[in-house]
Amino acid sequence: MLLDVRNLRVDFRTRDGVAHAVNGVSYHVDAGETLAVLGESGSGKSVTAQAVMGILDTPPGRISGGQILFRGQDLLKLKGEERRRIRGAGMAMIFQDALSALNPVMTVGDQLGEMFVVHRGMSRKDARAKAVELMDRVRIPAAAQRVRDHPHQFSGGMRQRIMIAMALALEPALVIADEPTTALDVTVQAQVMDLLAELQREYRMGLILITHDLGVVADVADRIVVMYAGRIVESAPVHDIYRAPAHPYTRGLLDSVPRLDLKGRQLSAIRGLPPNLVRIPPGCSFHPRCPLAQDVCRTDEPPLYEVSDGRGSACHFWRECLHGADR
């Protein structure tokens, strides 16, 4: 097992009180596997990833519990310098907004080359050659010339390729992609996702794909975890979850996507709003919006019930949900 997150908890101190962003999240990724983390804003999907990468802002954030095992080693017990060595070489991250993630006053060649200078002790000249090679690898046309350009001189899709090149520079075992194509147009999104999938196969990386887009997930993921209010509500192989979701929230998400056969009819929206993380509802945090909610949901927090092998649902009524009893 490449990465094993166990019962992770993250809090943020805010003006209104303590916001519980991540409340006992466990997931794991193997080499060569793509795990999709699906959730809406505020679900804790990005915060979990930031904790894994060790780039969480502390304060206001605080990891209040859990373990992050990377190749069996608990990252939370490492010192700053040891942690830094893993970041970049062992695991790397691709961010949503390449324009703000890249340094605007450095050429892309210098930014890519910096990885090799810092981690591998290469000379600047060798690092530059490596940068050109990487840009070629992510299919940036005329890489040898464009290596001297600054980020703003590239289009959105090209910038995202540079981010990918940077993440893959040291051939990390694990790559976390946080909404890598959300800022891109669909035709460019298709190019970038294709490239990412190809490189993943080639390097046999573990990939954590964080997204809110059910379509992107269906295209590339092996397994999915669905997050809501800082918890995992469903975890399953990709085919199972689309065929028959075992949690009412997952079902709600799938149903709120417009479908061909439902044109002209009401979309079945999930009622209400995601909860405020300072005041997460007791019991199952989804109960105020859930069509299946009963008294027990308001008092008892559901554990992640085993639905079948490798599949879990944090719903007291997962059987009813699975069999579509609410329809």
Partner: peptide
Amino acid sequence: SAVPVPDPAARERRERIILTGDV
């Protein structure tokens, strides 16, 4: 063809046209 479809079963069947270059 580029729009991701929320149906993993269609993954293999889909024929996508990947455009080259930028606008």
